[in-house]
Amino acid sequence: MAIEVRIPTILRTYTGGEKAVTGDGAVLSALIDDLEANHPGLKERLIEDGDLRRFVNVYVNDEDVRFIGGLEAEVSDGDQVVVLPAVAGGAA
């Protein structure tokens, strides 16, 4: 068993084009470190100054991790993790 992480189009350059990759970890930050070991560069696109980037959304089993502990959100085998860049912009 492992944790499946769905990767958005724009980050698939780091996963050899794969739509989903797997990793391990007890919390989200550990899972991201594990992914980074196999897909270098990915972490930098997700994390900035020790926190999740403002315009990157990560969901664990459909919950936005910002509501369940952020990088400390617990994850376990069989969980479904989804990464989605925010759709945002504007004249400002």
Partner: peptide, 19 residues
């Protein structure tokens, strides 16, 4: 979700549902 004249952002939960 920003409800703004100068910014827009999809609500994160609706964004996931959409995708």
């Amino acid at each position: 979700a920003a409800g703004s004249p100068t910014f827009y952002e999809f609500d994160s939960t609706e964004l996931l549902e959409l995708y």
